[in-house]
């Protein structure tokens, strides 16, 4: 089943057209990688999916994005509910300057959860899902800024999971991390891919090849090729895709 369906999406920054006529369907409970050279529109596309582009002035969207059948750019859409459903993990780990507990509890509290025991349970489950519980269970009240970069990023994943999203968007989540931390996050993503639909933007072709089920190749604001990851890396249909994944440009 598809969780996201994009039809003829155009996206503008002012007068610049950053995405051109994108149509794609993203499968539920799988990992979809978006690859392409810098400025190809893959991050812009990702941020259309939870309407984070709304924060930038002078942007415009044409076409439709259906998430579980609902057009998220229709006038009466509840953005709070949308973002609860579609979580996001950013390039740079960005925990709040609060305790580990408060970081995780922030989302559920924002959505009205006040019961202490329920919040504690959410914190524990979320940290367990993000494979961070063992390292943090004795220091939940310590500042999240004291964690290492990799731990901070897993905390951000836990924080996103705490509001029970169905879809998880990840914008180059390992680009600020060392190889060991990257490996842990990748293992975590593979684990999460069983229960969540993950869309990940990555600069690393190896990463896309290692963890994703489907891969979409963006180039100059267009979706050039979209297929099973194995097919993209073994037998790309378009010459641009082949040249990019073999490292001849980008």
């Amino acid at each position: 089943m598809n969780c996201i369906e994009v039809n003829n999406l155009d996206f503008y920054y002012g007068d610049t057209k950053a995405l051109k006529d994108i149509s794609m369907e993203i499968k539920e409970k799988s990992i979809t990688a978006l690859i392409g050279p810098s400025g190809c529109g893959k991050s812009t596309f990702l941020k259309c999916l939870n309407r984070m582009n709304d924060l930038i002035e002078g942007t415009k969207v044409d076409g439709e994005i259906l998430i579980y059948g609902e057009d998220i750019y229709k006038g009466d859409v509840d953005i709070t509910a949308l973002r609860r459903n579609v979580g996001m993990v950013f390039q740079k780990p960005n925990p709040f300057p609060m305790s580990i507990y408060d970081n995780i509890a922030y989302g559920p509290k924002s959505h009205g959860e006040k019961r202490k025991d329920v919040l504690m349970e959410i914190v524990e489950t979320s940290l367990k899902k993000a494979a961070l519980w063992e390292e943090t269970k004795d220091r939940l009240n310590k500042s999240a800024l004291g964690l290492s970069g990799g731990q901070q990023q897993r905390l951000c994943i836990a924080r996103a999971l705490a509001v029970e999203p169905k879809i998880l968007l990840m914008d180059e989540p390992t680009s600020a991390l060392d190889p060991m931390a990257t490996q842990r996050i990748e293992e975590l993503m593979e684990e999460l891919g069983k229960d969540y639909s993950i869309v990940i933007v990555t600069h690393s072709m190896q990463q896309a090849a290692r963890i994703s089920d489907e891969t979409a190749f963006f180039y100059l604001g267009e979706l050039m090729e979209y297929d099973k990851t194995r097919r993209i890396f073994e037998k790309p249909k378009r010459s641009e895709t082949e040249r990019y994944i073999t490292g001849r440009f980008g």
Partner: peptide, 20 residues
């Protein structure tokens, strides 16, 4: 990034302002 993180969790603008 703090603001983005808060909004991406579905927190309202006002809550982001007062809590973050």
């Amino acid at each position: 990034e703090y603001k983005e993180a808060s909004l991406a969790l579905g927190a309202s603008r006002l809550r982001t302002l007062f809590k973050v």
